[in-house]
Design a protein around this nucleic acid. Sequence first.
DNA 1: GCCACTGTATGGTTTTCATCGAACACTCGG
DNA 2: CCGAGTGTTCGATGAAAACCATACAGTGGC
Lengths: 108, 108
Amino acid sequence: MSTPRHRTAPEHTHPDDVPVLTALAALADPVRLTLVRELSGSPEWSRACGSFDVPVGKAALSHHFTVLRAAGLVEQRDEGPRRVNRLRRAEFDARFPGLLELVLRTDC
Amino acid sequence: MSTPRHRTAPEHTHPDDVPVLTALAALADPVRLTLVRELSGSPEWSRACGSFDVPVGKAALSHHFTVLRAAGLVEQRDEGPRRVNRLRRAEFDARFPGLLELVLRTDC
DNA sequence: GCCACTGTATGGTTTTCATCGAACACTCGG
DNA sequence: CCGAGTGTTCGATGAAAACCATACAGTGGC
């Protein structure tokens, strides 16, 4: 139990290492935009991957989270059998000031 | 004669009528991002479509401008044989505050 | 009138991406 | 140990998008 991590921990990319194009492409998808928005309305580490209301299967959902991680938008941590998420608000905002606020505020 | 417009004038969409997803998708392309940036460094109405340094043919270029128009990013006007462009800075910024400034400022 | 120039439209190819189904890996409670 | 729950990986598929080559339509200079 000292090194309890059997499952490979998710690979993260810090927002500082993310090109603008990657960030924009990550946000330019309806499913991912929903994930980010829903995530922004929940306390950190409170939402598991499967807890989001999006009309896609598990496989596609997993892929979307990979994209969000690679874009520096989401951080994940394994918590028992599930993988919980956190929106990297401050870090992402430091790299792309106003972008998150924009996509979160804009209704349609 | 009385109706002097033979060439169909380009169809424009006001930024206010543009969904966020459309704006993000329009900017999430390397060629279009180059167009927007290059356009931002030139005086309004000074650049014809063919005057941009992008590695695509005329047809693709024309298509990219259609996308930019539909996203409310660019306004076009026919001036003799060429079609000159203008970045809709103020209007786009009113709809999506900070977005344009962000993609213009961010280097990579 | 013709011709070079500029951009659009069309048709077809290639690539990219979102998606699914099924199989697999891990965790935890019984 | 087993089984339910959760998420990833793989292979394949379908749709969307970028692209090109060609043909076409205006414009203006000669």
